[in-house]
Structures are given as C-alpha cells and as structure tokens.
C-alpha cells in the first residue's frame, strides 16, 4: 500500500511541477511551490515507512516548517521588495 501511495504522490508531484514551470503568473508559481512542498512532506513520510526507517519523519516535520516560512517569505518579498525591515507607504494599504 505504501508503494501505491508513493507512486501516486510522485505523479502528483510531477503534475504540480509542470504547473510550477508553466504558471502564467507569479502567484500560480507560489501556489505550486506550496503544494509541491506539502506533497514532499507526505512523500518523505511514506518513503520512511516504505524503507522501514520512520526516522525520516523528523526531516518531514522540518520540511513542513521550512515550506511554510518560505512561502510567506516569498510573498512578502514580492510585495514589499524587501524581507527584513518594511517601513514604507505600501503598508498602509494592507487591511
């Protein structure tokens, strides 16, 4: 059953990767990166069960954390063109 799940997740990752490379706008790409990261977390977990070493779950948890922070950082960078100190007039338009 884990073989089936890993094959399905692999196909899903390839499909999301195609959307990541052909996405017309930036937000399509960000969405595809986020979805690809979620699939990767699941894939690492399934792969750990498949090889009989569930220690890979720590790596999956770390990947989930990095994925979330990375998505937010990409969005913030492309909105404000800066990651660290955002003090501009554009912060007023945020509701």
């Amino acid at each position: 059953m884990f073989v089936l799940a890993s094959i399905a997740l692999f196909i899903a990752m390839i499909l999301v990767l195609v959307r990541l490379f052909t996405g017309p706008t930036l937000y399509d790409r960000v969405l595809a990166v986020n979805s690809f990261g979620t699939h990767t977390v699941l894939f690492i977990g399934v792969l750990g069960f498949l090889s009989g070493r569930p220690d890979f779950l720590d790596i999956a948890l770390l990947y989930a954390l990095i994925n979330f922070v990375g998505t937010i950082a990409i969005l913030k960078f492309f909105r404000y063109r800066a990651i660290g100190d955002v003090r501009r007039e554009t912060s007023k338009t945020e509701s």
Partner: peptide, 16 residues
C-alpha cells in the same frame, strides 16, 4: 491511504 493518494493526485490534476 488509498483515498488520501486519490485526493492528492486529484488536487495535482486540478492544479495543472
């Protein structure tokens, strides 16, 4: 697990 794989691949097809 099979239904989870199904939903994962359905979401990927929809994203594409």
């Amino acid at each position: 697990i099979v239904s989870g794989s199904f939903f994962a691949i359905i979401g990927a097809i929809g994203t594409l």
